[in-house]
Design a protein around this nucleic acid. Sequence first.
DNA 1: GATGAATGAGTATTCATTCAT
DNA 2: CATGAATGAATACTCATTCAT
Lengths: 205, 205, 205, 205
Amino acid sequence: MGRKEDIYAAALNLFARNGFRATTTAAVAREAGVAEGLIFHHFQSKSGILMAILNEVADDFLGQAEKAIEKSVSGLDAIESIVRLHFRFHEKRLLEFTVLMQELPWEMNRSGSPAAEAMRRRLSGLLSRMSECIEEGVRDGSIRADLDPEDTALVIHSLVTGLIRTIREIPGLKVNPGIEDQTFTFLRAALLPGRHGDNANRPGP
Amino acid sequence: MGRKEDIYAAALNLFARNGFRATTTAAVAREAGVAEGLIFHHFQSKSGILMAILNEVADDFLGQAEKAIEKSVSGLDAIESIVRLHFRFHEKRLLEFTVLMQELPWEMNRSGSPAAEAMRRRLSGLLSRMSECIEEGVRDGSIRADLDPEDTALVIHSLVTGLIRTIREIPGLKVNPGIEDQTFTFLRAALLPGRHGDNANRPGP
Amino acid sequence: MGRKEDIYAAALNLFARNGFRATTTAAVAREAGVAEGLIFHHFQSKSGILMAILNEVADDFLGQAEKAIEKSVSGLDAIESIVRLHFRFHEKRLLEFTVLMQELPWEMNRSGSPAAEAMRRRLSGLLSRMSECIEEGVRDGSIRADLDPEDTALVIHSLVTGLIRTIREIPGLKVNPGIEDQTFTFLRAALLPGRHGDNANRPGP
Amino acid sequence: MGRKEDIYAAALNLFARNGFRATTTAAVAREAGVAEGLIFHHFQSKSGILMAILNEVADDFLGQAEKAIEKSVSGLDAIESIVRLHFRFHEKRLLEFTVLMQELPWEMNRSGSPAAEAMRRRLSGLLSRMSECIEEGVRDGSIRADLDPEDTALVIHSLVTGLIRTIREIPGLKVNPGIEDQTFTFLRAALLPGRHGDNANRPGP
DNA sequence: GATGAATGAGTATTCATTCAT
DNA sequence: CATGAATGAATACTCATTCAT
C-alpha cells in the first residue's frame, strides 16, 4: 500500500471518528506517518480527500445497487434489495458510510461545488431507479398500485437513511436488534397489494 | 425586544443559513447590532446560543406533540398528528428546525455534553410516547397488530425526519408538491389493519 | 462589615490564592456578593484594591517594627525582633503577606506608579532603621564591629524575605520545622562579636 | 542562527523587559521577524518558550555549580563558589536570570505543570548538594559544627536569591557597590568555626 | 450607595496551504 | 515523490471599565 493509500485510510478513520472539520491535516499526516505536505501533493486540498472518499463509496453503492436490481425477481424484491444494501453498507463499510452521511449534506449546500452536482445526479439516479422498480412492481403485482412511484421512492429512501442516521447519531438510544426485520415488515405492509389499501381507491364490491 | 433576544434572533438566522461552525461570533454581533462581548455576557459561549435554540424548539415541539396526542381520536390519529406536526414545524419554524437537524447530530456525539443528554431524554420520551400511541391504536383497532410498537415508532420517526432532511439538504432535488399526502398514504397503508399482513398472524378461515 | 470591606476581603483571598492578574473583577464581585460596578465605586480600579491591601499591610508592619525596636534591649535584639516580626506576619497575616511578596515587585517596576514610590520609601526607611540598629548593636557590644551596617541590613532583610519566599513559592519543598530557630542561630553566628571574625580584621595577639 | 533561535532570543528579551504575561506572542513574532504561527510550530505555546528558557538556564546553572563544587578545596569554598556563581549569573546571564526569578514562582504554583516538577527536583538537588558541602566543611574544619546542614543550605540559598531579587526588583534602592564582598564577609562570619557559637557546644577549657 | 447590562480593544492559538530543498 | 519549516488570515473568548437607572 503506497503513501497515497495510507493518507486515504488515515483520513477515512479520522473523518469518521471526529468529523471532517474537526480533523486537521496535521492529524491526518501524523496518523498516516507522512509529512503534511504530501497530502497536498496527492490530493489537492483537504476536501480533495473527502471528495475521493465520497465518490468511491457512492460509486460502489450505486454499482452494487444496479447489480441487485438486475438480479431481483420482482419490483418489490428490487426495492428490498436496495434497502438491504443500505444495511449491508452500514455494516461492511461503516467508516465510509459514516463519512458519507455526516459530510454529504454540508458539501451539497456549498453552492458551486462540482462534487455536489455529481452527488445530486447520483442521488437522482438512484431515486429514479427505485421509482422504476416500484412501477415494475405494480406491473408484476408485487406492489400495490395506489402509490405514486416517485414519492414512494423518496419516502422509502428517506426511511432507511433516516433510520441509519438516527441509530448512528444518537449514541445512547436503545435500539432493538430486530429493527431491520421490522423495517422490512413495515415496508411490505405498506407496499404489498391487498384488500384495504386497494379498496380505498376503488368502488366497493 | 431586548439585546439578548436580538442576539438570539441574529444567531438563529446565521446558524440556519450558514451553519453553526461557519458562523462567527463577530458576524452574530454585527447582525444583532451589539458589541461582541455582550454575546458572552448573556450566553456563556458560542455554543451556549446553540443550546438555547435547540432547547427552545425541542421543548416547543414536545409540548405541541403532547397536546396533539391528547386531542387525537385514535392511535393512528395520534401518530399522524405527530407526523403532521413535523411538517408544520418545518414550515412555521423553518429556521429553528433547520438548525436542530443540522447541528443536533454533532452536539449529540460530543461526549459529556449536558445538553446532549437532555436531548437524548427528549427523543427517547418522544419515541416512547409514539410507541404508546401505536399500542393504543392496536387496542382501538386503528392500527394493525403485527408490528412491534417500539421498532415501528423508530421507523416512523426516522421516515419523517429522514424525509425532511433529504428535502432540505439536497437543494436541487425535484420533489413533488404532494409528497406530504403521499407520506400519509404510505403510512396508512403500512399501519391500517385488515391487510394480508394481519392475516398472516391470524388463523385462516 | 460593609460592602467595601466585603470587596477588600474577597480580593485579598483571591489575590493571595490566584494572583492579582489571574483574579478578575467579576470573580471578586461574585466572591464578595456584590455587583461588579460597586468595586469601581469604592476603589477606582482593580489595582486600587491592590494598593489598599499593600499600603495597609506595609504600614501595619512598619508600625509594629518600630514598636519592637523601641522595646528592644540591644541592637542585636532589635534586629532579631524585626526578623521575628517577619515570621509572625507570615503566620498571622498570611494572605496579606502573600499578596505583598507576590505583587510588590511587579508594582515597583511599573514606572510612574505613585504607590511604588511610597513603597520604595517605606523599604528604604526599614533598611535605614535596621542599619541604625546594627550601629547601635556595635556600640552596645551585641554586634560585631567589622560589618558594614547598611550592607548587612540589606543582607539580613534579603535573607528573611528570601527564606519566606522560597518556602512559600516552592510548594513541594521539604522544610524542617526548626528552620526559624536555625535562622536565628545562623544570624547570631554571623552577628555576635567573637574571636575569629574580629581577629580577621585585627592584628593577631 | 535559525528562526527558532530568533524566536527564543526575542522572547527572552521581551520577557525580561516586560514580564511574561505582558509580552504578547505578536510582539515576539515582530521582534523575531517571523510569522506569529511559527512560534507555535516550534514551541507549542507561549509558555513553551518560557519553559525552554527556564530549563536552559537552570541546567546551565546546575552544571556550572557541579563543576565549581568539584574544583573547590574545602566545604566553605564550595559554598562560596555557589554563591559567587549566583552573582556571576546575575551579571553574565542577566536576561535569563531575570526571567527565571520573575516567572518561576508563578510556574511553580501552577499545579500539575510538568516543568514545575522538574524545577522542584533541580532546586532540591541543589539544596542537597549545598547541604553535603556544609557537611564536608564540618569534616574538613572549614565550617563550624553547630549548624544544621539542611537548614543552613536553605538559609544561604535564600539569602543570595533574596538579595539578588531585592536589588533587581526595587529599582530605586541605593545599593553599595561592595555588597558582594560584604555578603561573603557575612557568610564567613556565620560559617567559620572558632567562634563562641562553637564554644557553646564544646566543653569549656 | 448599588446594580448589571453594555462596551471594545486585546490575545493566544489554529490550520490549510505553500515552497524551497 | 517526499519533507517540514514557514505563512498569515481567521476566531472564540476575556476583562477592566463605564453608565444609565
